[in-house]
Amino acid sequence: MKKQNAQNALTPTGATGALAGKKHPLWSEMKKNRSLFLMLLPALLLVLLFKYIPLGGIVLAFKDYRYDLGIVGSPWVGLQNFKFFFLSGTGLRVTVNTIVYNAANLITSQLLSLVLAVVLNEIWGRRFKKIIQSVSFLPYFVSWILVGAFVYNIFNVDNGVLNHFLVALGHDPINLYAMPSAWFFIIMIFNSWKWVGYNSVVYIAAITGIDSECYEAADIDGANVWQKIWRITLPSIKPTVITIVLLNVGRILRGDFQMFYQIVGRNGQLYDATDVIDTFVFRSLASGGDIGMTMAATLYQSVLCFIIIVGVNALVKKIDSDYALF
């Protein structure tokens, strides 16, 4: 009885077709599954309230916002609000930086997570496995503010761990804060360090879901570890990998603000190499509090995000339509 009920609930559209002839299909659908729709209501309301209604605020990107005139009454200013972003070529530089950093971070951290998950799956000792998993997960709980303090204590010229080490080995100390190109790698390393354990959880779950009979069959056929990974594990979790990559590509223009801001701070020497859209916009607008300009920058980011995610999805669809998100 219970099981049947659950099945019924999971396929709400199953039997409604028969009733459709008499009444309006939507109405009868709603009536039949009213409890399900009622359960859906809070989520729908939330999405409507926090995702759709605020979209109206986009008009502010084209207005000179005044408190006493409100959103509707404020005067239009055309593309004026976008100007600060593109003046003197900074907009292009930070956009390129954002995409390069996020693409590199996406690839390194996801690749490492995948490797970690596969390796953990092959490890026999249960205890050892747990320890590795916990240790790799821990950095996720460390806030970027603390990481910023670590970074300064490792790399600063006078008292940094790195320079003490170099001096002890008889080398000259180096000032990484004057070497912008090094920060691409420093940021990438810290990003992976922080996210590897967390990201690997999804892959571990996907690997656990693989039918163990496949591995048993492979064992009987005499496959070695590498063959099993290459022929069974990786193909089985391919859809998971693609979904995760697609979801993360959508965030590619939203640099992890906390990470960049806490690691780099207000150090002008590194801006050329480390400025991403979010940090640049924050710095430019934090002191002015200009709502129109902030909205313009956000709109620019969102439109680019939209283009990228639709583009990547189309690419995936072209290669293998089963894996596309939509």
Binding site: F84, R266, Y271, D290
Partner: peptide, 13 residues
Amino acid sequence: KSEYSAIQNIMSQ
């Protein structure tokens, strides 16, 4: 304001 914000950026950078 656009130009001024660029100038402020020059100051810090």
